[in-house]
Amino acid sequence: MSMIEIVREEMRKCDAKTLRSVRLNIGQMAAIVPDSLSFCFEVITKGTEMEGARLMMDVIPLKGYCNTCESEFEIKDYVFACPSCGDTNIKTISGQDLAIVEIEVD
């Protein structure tokens, strides 16, 4: 699991012995269910320097940017169109995140 590898690498960088918590950004549209991620994490880290660490997950709302009228908006009900001008030429600026933001270590 790539998350474990990143945490391990970051712990090594700062010479940490134990992991207290990991803060994650999980996009509203990411293919990750927070509950099952917590469970996986618990199973995988058993008996390692990460055992017992808490996973804190912030769900990041789905937001879009309209390339036509340059407005920013929340994408509701997965309708990928600009609420101001109706154009579908938009890009997703958040809500597909799957990132580690911060770790707390000793």
């Binding site: 790539s2 998350m3 590898e5 990143i6 970051e10 700062c14 940490a16 994650l24 799957l98 990132a99 580690i100 933001v101 911060e102 770790i103 707390e104 270590v105 000793d106």
Partner: peptide, 13 residues
């Protein structure tokens, strides 16, 4: 100690 990381979990893939 809190350490800021900001890395995409899928970066290796």
């Amino acid at each position: 100690m809190k350490v800021s990381v900001v890395r995409n979990i899928l970066e290796a893939n």
